[in-house]
Simulated assay, not measured.
Amino acid sequence: MRKLMYLIMAVLLFMGCSKNRRGQNGDDQITLQVQQVKEKNAEDLAFRIRVFAHLPADFKDRKQLNEKMEYGIDSCFFRLNRGKQELPSGVIPVANGIKDCFEYVLLFSGSVADKNEQLVYRDKYISGKTYQVILK
């Protein structure tokens, strides 16, 4: 337990020292965290996204939800670029080992970062709501 607390504190310290733009949005069913990732290739934009599902302890279809969130998520994300929807060129699921947390890396090819970056997540499997995150 003590090791876990040290690990959590180290991750929070690391994320707090990062200069990457980030944002968060959510409600009682989902928390969405977004962080822009610096890419070596200046022509691509990348974002790390975490979707935390606040599910009841007796939720029975966890395995089916995990499968849907891994294989059926590619059309749920888009970026608002000057008022127009831009779909990601790639959505890569990341296995993170955190219960009820789904992590992804979104890639946008040939895109330029906007000052007020906005990412939108349309949930299909947990709440059915749309979440918009503005990166600061």
Rank of each mutant, 00 (worst) to 15 (best):
K84W: 02
Q85P: 11
Q85H: 12
L87I: 11
L87G: 10
P88Q: 07
P88A: 09
P88W: 05
P88L: 08
P88G: 08
S89L: 02
S89A: 12
S89R: 06
G90Q: 15
V91D: 01
I92F: 11
I92M: 14
P93R: 01
P93I: 01
P93V: 05
P93S: 01
A95N: 13
A95E: 14
N96G: 08
G97H: 05
G97F: 04
G97D: 01
G97C: 04
G97M: 03
G97W: 03
D100M: 02
D100R: 03
D100V: 00
D100G: 05
C101W: 00
C101S: 08
F102K: 01
E103P: 00
V105E: 10
V105Y: 09
V105K: 15
V105P: 04
L106P: 12
L106W: 09
L107P: 08
F108Y: 15
F108I: 10
F108P: 10
S109M: 08
S109K: 15
S109V: 10
S111H: 10
S111G: 11
V112D: 03
V112R: 15
A113Q: 15
A113F: 00
A113T: 11
D114E: 15
N116I: 06
E117T: 14
L119Q: 05
L119N: 07
V120F: 02
Y121D: 02
Y121N: 00
R122C: 11
K124R: 11
I126G: 03
I126F: 03
I126V: 13
S127I: 05
G128W: 03
G128Q: 07
G128S: 06
G128R: 04
K129V: 01
Y131C: 07
Q132Y: 01
